[in-house]
Structure formats: C-alpha cells, structure tokens
Amino acid sequence: MSAQVGGSGFEGFHEATASFTFERLVFAPKAGYQLTGVEFTVTGARGQVGNGQAPIAVPGIPVQNGDTFVASDVWHPFQTTFSAFLGANAFYQQGEDGTAAAYGTAFARFDSVSIVAHIAAVPEAATVELFLLGAVALVGFVGRRRRSSCAGRGIQGYPQ
C-alpha cells in the first residue's frame, strides 16, 4: 500500500492517503493455553522533499532508519481492532516567471504487517492441586519439627 504526490504543473495542495483496518480480530488458543498479548509490527518507508510531508499513524512508536521505519506494539489480548494510516502531501505554487515558487514531493508506503499472538500454557487443575498438597505437607512438617524442638528444651507453652 503506498501513496505518492509531487512534481509540478498543477497549482495547489495535493494529497494522497491510504489506510487499512482489521476489525473483530479473534484469537482462540488451543485447550491448555491462554492468550497473553498480541504483537503488531508494521514496516514501511516514507520520505519528503521541499514542502512535502509523509505522515503515518501506526501502533507503537516508529523507529526510522533513513527512509524506512519499523513500528511494533504489544496490545491487550482482548483488543479486537487494529488500523494504520499513511499519507503524502505537497504544495505546488507557480512563480511569476512560470517556474516553481514552492514545491515538494512525498511518498509513504507499508511494506509488511505481521500479527503475532503470544500464548502461555495454563497449568492443569491436577498440577495446581498437587502443588497445594505439597505446600500444606511442607508447612505441617516444619510446624511438627518446631514443636518437637521446643518441647525438648522445656519452652513454655509446649508439652514436655
């Protein structure tokens, strides 16, 4: 997807825009897994000369490297709409002598969009129960050991 304006010949403000939206995205992990986040990454390029401008609106903060950019952001798992916008605009004004008094060129494009769902395993109920049973047993063992240690030394409150 791209937009480009510029050059000369027609006086005035020239603009091209493009956008896309993914709506009602649904991510359904398999049983035993849960969705922890959704990462959106957009790559592209933009550039401008003179009074040209190339605005973009993407998730996250775009990192520019020359004309190219990468923007990435992790969203809440229940976010269901993702969109991005790009534009290119420039103004051309002809001077009295027929040459350009003010001009510009601009371009912007999206090269790729990736959507990655982050998932994590959900422990089974039996695993959680086994963990809790072990914790209770450990607490009981430590309490019994402490009582027998105190009883041997005649500490008040514990039977001898």
Rank of each mutant, 00 (worst) to 15 (best):
R153M: 09
E11F: 01
Q93I: 09
R24I: 03
D73K: 13
N51Q: 05
P59A: 08
A3G: 06
E11N: 14
G6H: 02
V128M: 08
F27G: 09
T127S: 14
A45G: 04
R46P: 00
G44N: 04
A102G: 07
C150H: 13
A71M: 11
V139M: 15
F91H: 14
G98N: 08
V74N: 10
A121K: 10
G140V: 12
T99K: 12
F69H: 00
G32T: 09
R153K: 15
E23Q: 15
Q160T: 13
R153A: 07
Q53H: 11
E11P: 06
I119C: 06
A125Y: 09
V5M: 05
A100G: 10
N65C: 00
F69R: 00
Y103H: 10
G134T: 12
F20V: 03
F78Y: 14
G47F: 01
F141R: 14
P55I: 05
A57C: 03
P123N: 03
F78I: 05
T99L: 07
M1L: 10
A54Y: 11
N89T: 06
Q156S: 15
G12P: 10
T21L: 02
F107R: 11
I119V: 15
A108Q: 08
A16Y: 00
A28S: 14
F78S: 15
A45Y: 02
A84G: 11
L35S: 07
A71S: 15
G95P: 11
G60L: 12
G52A: 01
R46Y: 02
K30I: 04
R144W: 13
V116S: 09
A151Q: 15
Q34I: 03
A57K: 12
G12I: 02
F107V: 03
A16K: 08
T43A: 04
A121G: 06
F82D: 08
P55W: 13
F107Y: 08
L25Y: 01
G152T: 10
A120L: 04
N65M: 02
S83I: 03
A126F: 12
V49R: 11
D111P: 04
A57F: 08
V38G: 06
E39G: 04
A54I: 00
V26K: 05
F131M: 14
A125K: 15
T41Q: 14
A106K: 09
A57S: 15
G52F: 03
R146I: 11
L130M: 11
Q53W: 01
A137W: 05
Q4M: 04
S19M: 11
R146G: 01
W75S: 12
A135W: 09
V70G: 02
F91G: 10
V26H: 09
I155K: 14
Q160V: 09
V42D: 00
F110Y: 13
T36K: 12
G143Q: 10
V116N: 13
G154F: 07
A71F: 13
G154T: 02
F27H: 10
N51H: 02
V42T: 00
G95M: 02
I56N: 09
V74D: 09
G154P: 00
V70E: 11
D97V: 00
H118I: 01
R109E: 07
Q156T: 13
S112L: 04
A137D: 01
T41N: 09
F27P: 01
V5H: 03
G66N: 00
G50L: 11
P59Q: 02
F22C: 06
